[in-house]
Amino acid sequence: MSNATNSRAESIARVLPALDYSKIAIYLLVMTFAAFFISPIWTGLVTAFKTTGAVTATTPFLPPGPDGFTLQKWTTAIEYLSTGMTNSLLMSFPATIASVTLGSTAAYGLTLVDWHKRTQFAVLVLFMFGIFIPYQAVLVPLSDFWINMVGVDGLVGPVLGGLPFFTERHSRLFAVTVTHVVYGIPICMLLFRGYYVALSDELIEAAKIDGASITSIYRRIVLPLSKPMFGVVFIYQFTMIWNEFLFSLTLIGSSASPAATVTLVLSGLGSDLTGVDFGLRMAGAFVAALPTLIIYVLFAEQFAKGLASDN
């Protein structure tokens, strides 16, 4: 008996010296910050599982009791958002792929291809302008351009009219896609540029001496070597486009439109004349965020590699 007490005291004593006060303080601080940052997401998550009654009856960050628990908010959210999700996917993937690819080729042309240095610099400056133009400043001309000058409403219809679910309004989705590509190229170019500037000059020179043309140097040397960077830029650009709201709002207009993107639908979800359904809004937010999370997981390895090689 005394033996057991002894060994227990000893084992506590063995643990204690490692826990000095500064370490305890650091752990407390870390835990406080962790709780601080996680609490909104946690609160949102538990709210999404509460019935409308439970949302008002319970403390926001506490899980619902057995009678306050429901999955109904999730099913409603998925049902409500599914068209928006489809529209967003139809818009985001082509827009991301196009802007990343064009950004990469633009960066290649401005760093690793030898041509008029001054013109190269001038073009680079134009790209920089492109990054810093605020969205708000172009919204009115943008919608004027697409709707009145291009007349996008009648443009895509004849081509894609035969597809199921297609309505005239889906032409607006095409306008949003192209707008995202145009707005995405400068920042994608800048991200790739940093990577290409650091790429060994001798590698490109060796390829030139081996007889490779500008296009085959890109295709066979630069493109395969920038795979990690493609991962980084793809994640970044996809998240930006998926979450973007202003262009959708301006060009598509209403969350009731058959072409409405998920962000547009989400903005109207769970709020009507009877009040705000917080549980539904939270569930909807999680559903809408799902594709970006999946992309992160899929490209995580590339992302880490890209960040490591960039530094």
């Binding site: 060994s200 001798e202 020179e205 060796a206 030139k208 001496i209 490779a212």
Partner: peptide, 14 residues
Amino acid sequence: PQERDIAMVFQSYA
């Protein structure tokens, strides 16, 4: 360089 029919070995091997 592509048109010159030369080969080069770099210090870094490249």
